[in-house]
Structures are given as C-alpha cells and as structure tokens.
Design a protein around this nucleic acid. Structure first.
Lengths: 212, 212
DNA sequence: ATTTAGAGACCGACTGGTTGGTCTGTATTG
DNA sequence: CAATACAGACCAACCAGTCGGTCTCTAAAT
C-alpha cells in the first residue's frame, strides 16, 4: 500500500501543473488523493509546505547532477557539455515540479524561500564558473560577457518546461544534443571548433547520464 | 490630473510584480491607488480584466515590433537580428508586464486566454518562419531542427525578465547585442560567418530601434 | 445670470461564498 | 492498550464583487 504522503505529493503535483498552486484547494487535493483533511494535515504542516517540498526535491536533484558533472571532467568544454545535458534531461524527469516552481516560487514563505534560493544560486554560480574557466583556457570566446552568456544559457534551458512534452516530436536526448550544439557553437573560439567537440556530439549516444 | 484608470494600472502593476496577481487583493490595489472599491469597479469589470489588459498591451507591442522588423529587411540574417534586438529591448520597456504575464498567465479566464494565445502564437510562428527561410537560403545551418532552435531562442530571450534590471551591470542594448551575437554564432553556417554579420554588430550602434 | 436636471465619477459598508486550518472522535496497528 | 493514522464537521478569516448613495461638472431652461 502506497504511503499517503507520497500519494498526496504525486496527486497534488498533477493538479498544480494544470491549475497552479492557487487554483487548487486543499479540499480538491484531498478528494483527488482519496483521503481527508485529517489525512492531509497529519502529513503536512500546511499547504505551503507542499509547495516547498516540491521545489526542494527538484532543486536538490539539479544541484547534485551539476556537481557530479563538474567533478567528472577537467576541460571546460566537457564540463559544460555534461552540465547542459544533465540539466536538460531534468526536464524530462521533473517537468511538473519545475512548472509549479517557476509559476509560484514567489509565494513561498520567507523561511522556505531562503533555502531554495541558496541552492539555486549555487547552481547558477557553477555555470558562471565553467564559463569563466573556459575563457581562461582559451576554449571560450573572451568577448562574451560571462553573466549575459550564463543567463542566456540558463534561460534557454529553463524555458524547456514551457514546451517540452514526452509525446512531442523530439526526445529529451535529441533536444539536449541540439542545445549542447547551439551553445558550443555560440561560445567556442574558432580554434576550438573541431569535429570532436561538435558534430560528433549530435550522433554519439549520451556520454553522461544517470541511468546505468 | 491623471486618469484613475491609468493610475490603477500603473500601481497594480508594481504590486503584482512583487507579490504576484494572487498575492494582491483588490483592497490593496485600491489603497495604493488612492481610490475606492467603487472607483475600481467603475473602470474595470473585474480583477481578471486587469490581468488581461496588462497581458494584452505587452503582447500587442511585441507582435507589432516583430512584424515591422520582418517587413523592413529581406535577408534572414538581418531579419533575425532585427527581431531579436526588438524583442530583447521590450524587456526594458515592459518588464513588469512580462513578469506578471509569465507568472499568472494560466489563471486567465478562457475568453481572455484565447485572445492572448493567438497573438503569442503569431509571434512564435514568425521566429520559426525566419529560421526556415535562413536554412533555405543556406545562411543558417540545416542540421539544426527548426522547432528546437526556435524554442531555444525564445527561451533565452524570454528568461530576461527573471534577471534584467535597469540598474544592472549591462544596458539593454549591450544585452541585445550579445544575444544577437550568440544566436548568430549558433545558427550561421561557416560560410556565412563573416565580419559584417557578427563582430560589427557588437560595436555598431543599434541599426533598428523605435526611437527616432 | 441663476436655477435645475442629469450623467458620470467615485465612495465604502456590506455580503455571500470560499478557504486554510483545527479539533474531536474513530479505526487500525504493533 | 498505546500510539499512530485518518475521518469529517466546524470555524474564523478573508476576499471579490455589489449596491445605495454622494459629489461634481456640464448644459439646458428660465
């Protein structure tokens, strides 16, 4: 028998994704989860805690992935490839979480908000860091301001939650490969634009995933 | 003396930007606008209408800009430069509108939602269209799937609302130039990568704006 | 010039319905 | 027999929207 807590999380996520956090009442969640007010408040302190838990699971996962990708490789090129691939793939696993997150993150209670913000910033800094490294090694074009480039990359990937669907025309791996290709073409110096850094990527099977 | 309607729009926009549509009550809007419930409902049918008006002004503007940019130029390279520059600059003019839009668009009443959706789709199709043209003329790399590339561009730019600030390190024009540079490097074929299409852009003053 | 009539702008107490959360009670488990 | 897990009636707060009424300004009537 499934734990009620998990059932509530799963069910509410679906509702939130369609109607948004404010568009769903506790009573609706309770009905859809086949339980009662009592059941709900036995497992959660408040409706806000639900929102926090959803945010936190996804953020924690992304951060963990990025750290791993960052540690496995040495060269900035490989690093950014890994991070982006992992990052893009997260949208396949956690799309509902992410949708809710980006639509309601500014309703989080301050106590919760701070925790989330810290993890998000850590991730952002990793991306900035890699760009800086790449510019120092001469692999990435120095004329691109790091912050703007970083935000361009983050935006491009984050936006995926708005349009990606598992039944869509392209798989998440195809999308990830195209994104890596676009970003590398954008940031690599002409010296670094070689077959082994680019085209190969579009054919090769994922070189870094979490599936075993 | 300022029209009350305009005052309400301006004031509520500020509140919405910080707290979100659902985080602000009509009473708060009324208080911040130095008016009353009666004054509010004399000018607006409902709170939802406010949301619609905010969405519509910004969407209408973006679409108009893109159409103009599209008609002025012939070559896909120039077209995409124009569209992106205009698109990026919109975030300087309408950042509060856009913030509200992306955080609460799924709470729009169906009647309102349809109108907005139509205009958004029209804009998206224009971007897709230009990419396709560029691939046909041989200016853009054919190996990039149009839809993915288009969404990458849209995401990259749309995300600006999350981080751009007028007092930030970079002006909107600098950001626009970098974005154009990034996107052109990403999509142009090696044949088309010439000085006149790229670097020049980073120095040149805006070649297409609405200011006279 | 003065009065009158009416329309549009605006006020604010009030309401009907909704919502997150509580509390007492019951079943189930170890 | 605890202790945990859940049920569901209930409540206080809140909030969008209403409605009767006032104030102001214009324009026609006298």
């Amino acid at each position: 028998m499934a734990e009620l807590r998990e059932t509530i999380l799963r069910t509410s996520l679906e509702l939130f994704e369609q109607k948004g956090f404010h568009g769903v009442t506790v009573n609706q969640i309770v009905a859809a989860s086949n339980t009662s007010k009592g059941g709900f408040y036995h497992h959660f302190q408040s409706k806000d805690e639900l929102l926090f838990v959803i945010h936190d699971t996804f953020i924690t996962y992304v951060l963990k992935e990025a750290k791993a990708a960052n540690e496995i490789h040495r060269s900035p090129i490989k690093k950014i490839q890994s991070i982006i691939k992992a990052f893009v793939k997260v949208f396949d696993l956690y799309k509902p979480h992410i949708s809710v997150f980006y639509q309601e993150s500014n309703y989080l209670k301050p106590e919760y908000e701070e925790q989330i913000k810290r993890k998000r910033d850590a991730f952002k800094q990793m991306v900035f860091q890699v760009i800086e490294e790449g510019q120092e090694t001469g692999d990435f074009r120095k004329e691109l301001p790091m912050e703007i480039t970083g935000m361009a990359i983050l935006g491009m990937v984050n936006w995926i939650y708005k349009w990606y669907s598992r039944d869509g025309k392209y798989t998440i791996d195809e999308i990830a490969d195209v994104y890596v290709d676009i970003i590398l073409h954008a940031v690599l110096t002409t010296n670094s634009v070689h077959e082994e850094n680019l085209q190969s990527q579009m054919l090769e099977r994922p070189f870094f995933t979490n599936e075993k």
